[in-house]
């Protein structure tokens, strides 16, 4: 067992894969925590679908420029498309609140369809997109590792460094406005960070499961924590844990890394759900507390005349 483990760690491909998996596992839940808090858990999915069009565009540009391999511009293309898509979603969200989910749906379908169309134009088939749909951690290049490390550093630096301001923004946007926080700039920043995270995670779990590494660890953490900082920290640990473990499992068994990672994360959720009562997290549900005896008074909703 130890020998095979050592063999796994000695393989340069696995080293790169594990490094990327760990970086994604740590950074994705940081953004996921903010997205869950502002009830935009599906934003990552929307961005992921748009990123697929970016992959195809990168591919198209790559073959037009005669680059080999054709997909060497795929990930940069995904980053660009994801950033544009994220900013677009953010603008639509703030300008027209009512059509927010319809706007998201348009991006979902437009992104997938655009990707499939463009890859055809680039001389490929939709089979070429499979690696991006379901992840292709086995094919990561050293360049991918650097790109991932760079983007993860940005996400971690801003996501953790600006946590007080971002917490205020995601907790209560109107209050944040009333404190003079640069709300619009911070909103765009969150969207762009989400786009970075999606582009990076795409290599590990694929577009279809990209949101899972951002959101599921947060769902797990929420079950066992009571503070925002605690939730974020726990989610990072869970994320890194399932990504590294999941990838390691696929070294021994021929399974899809992305699917393995997500199933592991969901298993953690179920475990946490079961273990929660045992963790002694006795909730003090509205327990009378010192001078705080509650006797709720009904409201008088009488309209006052002048």
């Amino acid at each position: 067992m130890l020998e095979t483990l050592a063999a796994m760690l000695a393989s340069p491909l696995m080293q790169r894969g594990l490094l990327i998996a760990a970086l994604v596992g740590i950074s994705a839940p940081v953004i996921g925590t903010y997205l869950v808090q502002r009830r935009l858990a599906l934003l990552g999915d929307g961005i992921g679908h748009v990123a697929l069009t970016g992959v195809a565009m990168g591919w198209l540009a790559g073959s037009a420029a005669g680059l080999t391999p054709h997909d060497s511009l795929a990930v940069p293309g995904a980053v660009v498309a994801a950033v544009i898509g994220a900013v677009l979603i953010e603008v639509m969200r703030t300008k027209g609140r009512t059509s927010g989910d319809v706007a998201l749906a348009l991006l979902f379908y437009g992104g997938i369809a655009g990707g499939v169309l463009l890859i055809g134009l680039a001389g490929g088939t939709s089979a070429n997109l499979t690696g991006y749909l379901f992840g292709s951690i086995a094919t990561v290049t050293p360049l991918d590792v650097w790109l991932t490390a760079g983007l993860a550093a940005v996400v971690l630096g801003l996501g953790l460094g600006l946590r007080p301001a971002l917490f205020s923004l995601c907790h209560d946007e109107e209050f944040a406005l009333a404190t003079g926080l640069p709300v619009r700039a911070l909103n765009i920043m969150v969207a762009v960070m989400a786009a970075f995270t999606v582009s990076v995670s795409m290599r590990v779990v694929g577009v279809l499961l990209v949101s899972a590494v951002m959101i599921v660890p947060v769902a797990v953490a929420q079950l066992v924590t009571r503070s925002f900082a605690g939730t974020m920290g726990t989610a990072m640990a869970v994320g890194a844990g399932v990504c590294v473990t999941g990838l390691s499992i696929t070294y021994f068994h021929p399974l899809s890394p992305g699917a393995t990672i997500v199933v592991l994360a969901i298993a953690c959720y179920v475990l946490a759900l079961i273990a929660r009562p045992l963790l002694g997290r006795a909730r003090r549900h509205g327990a009378p507390h010192g001078a705080d005896r509650l006797h709720d008074v009904e409201d008088d909703l009488q309209l006052r005349g002048a």
Binding site: P164, A165, S168, E174, T179, R226
Partner: peptide, 29 residues
Amino acid sequence: PQRVGVGAGVPATALEVVASGLTGHRRLR
């Protein structure tokens, strides 16, 4: 502001919520 459903979403302690009053213009932390 008017109190609206604080319940769902990510948990936050009273201390964390109050601390968000300390950020603002030119103060991101």
